[in-house]
Amino acid sequence: MRIRLKVWRQESGDDAGKMVSYLLENVNPDMSFLEMLDTLNEQLLQEGSRPVEFDHDCREGICGQCGVMINGRAHGPLLHTTTCQLHMRVFKDNEEIFIEPFRAIAFPVKCDLKIDRTAFDRVIQSGGFIAVNTGQAPEANSIPIGSPEIEAAFDAAACIGCGACVAVCKNSSAALFTSAKISHLALLPQGAIEAQDRVIRMVDQMDKEGFGHCSNTEACEAECPQEISVLHIARMNWEYNKAQVLKK
């Protein structure tokens, strides 16, 4: 198949950047979207041009590294799918495809489609952990946890931090990402001890990074590759309000 691409090209963070058109012949419909970009880069290298930079790692949908806006949708037209798990058969022959980086003030573009998502790291560093003495692994059955609690916590922990929730949000809010970690730890006895401090620190950090307000449009859940539920956002709000009232 033949694909007409419009790709965001930007030399560096300081560069203004612009959309550049490319034509790609002989695209195999069974290629993944990233393989199609690899093909484009082969072509650019052969022409002596600078290849398009984009983030990727595992290419099996679990690492959260890849992620671009494809035709105006985070990770492309499919729901709950990472960019690497999107295949070219989803597109029509001779279709024009717009590829842009995830946009948010908190996610500055480093080069082309590559963005700086360390804002997420700093949110996690501010409280997304439990404070324990390292050493031997503790006896697994010493802390009783019910199976439904484990499952619920694991559902929240499944977040891969790709940033699609921020990219699709009209307010560039990181509420789904932040709440997934808060919810994950608040649901478990190990995390419950520091729940109050954690939620205040993480929400403060989220705000400091310049993410917007959550207005509950629920677009984040629709695009999230891990189908993280928006109810985690409600739990974060609950934990935050509780912490604000009860904090000493």
Partner: peptide, 19 residues
């Protein structure tokens, strides 16, 4: 504040399809 958080606008924006 939300407008400020968005930064540069998308050239092609179909985000409305999921909300």
């Amino acid at each position: 504040t939300n407008k400020r958080a968005g930064g540069i606008k998308y050239h092609y924006d179909r985000r409305g399809a999921v909300s």
